[in-house]
Design a protein around this nucleic acid. Structure first.
Lengths: 114, 114
DNA sequence: AAATATACTTAGAAGTTCGATGTATAAAAA
DNA sequence: TTTTTATACATCGAACTTCTAAGTATATTT
């Protein structure tokens, strides 16, 4: 199993988190598990990695947060995507697609030069 | 025309540079123009961005360099990919593909939730 | 002769991830 | 009942990154 590079983690974390939140609100701990699940365990954020990213996204107003304190069970900070965040997600998708085309083209032109 | 984010630049630069060098040796200035060309102007490295990356790759022994001083014209530092670099490129491709599948899956599951 | 394009280098600013550490509570196990 | 484990969030500091800017130098074009 390959370890994903720091750079790729960085480049993908924002589109991944915004995508998850665009489907439904969630909280830090759950996002960590969701990412692990959808990646089949290949991608796993540490909590010390994810929380600062969430704070950064909130500061940029791409997501919003509120505390949910249930009568039983522990309190959680829920995050929702903002309109600004939805627009950012669209832009991130375009960016990702652009780069993906560039590098897959690069790999296609040169066929299996082992 | 979208501006590509810093993070994506970072994540893609190594696979892109290694891919270019896996086809033929090249030098800094030419790589900058090549990347601009194959990306249709969407991706353009500054020289202050590319050269440190080349130095880093050389330090990691993924590429090698030598000076070519022609009888006429200016001298250039040519870079070639090493065996280690070829292996790294394979690994980078796998990593990229993994992340690409994760995020494209994420986008497929949710169909045009505008 | 001057301006522009080519070609490479390096330093410093600003930003990033990540492991470690800390706080706290609920649930499960002993 | 007590301990352990899982849940849940925050933050610091180390190590690393890219980017802008400034610097050096030469060939070509105007």
């Amino acid at each position: 199993m390959e370890k994903i590079s720091k750079e790729l983690i960085g480049a993908s974390s924002i589109p991944i988190i915004l995508s998850i939140l665009s489907k439904s609100e969630s909280y830090g701990y759950e996002i960590i598990k969701k990412v692990k699940e959808i990646s089949n365990g290949k991608l796993e954020y540490g909590d010390g990695t994810l929380y600062p990213v969430l704070h950064k996204l909130e500061k940029k107003e791409l997501i919003e947060s509120y505390w949910k304190i249930p009568e039983s069970g522990r309190k959680r900070k829920y995050y929702t995507i903002s309109n600004k965040g939805k627009k950012e997600l669209v832009s991130q998708k375009e960016n990702w697609t652009t780069i993906n085309q560039i590098i897959t083209n690069l790999w296609k032109i040169e066929p299996t030069l082992t």
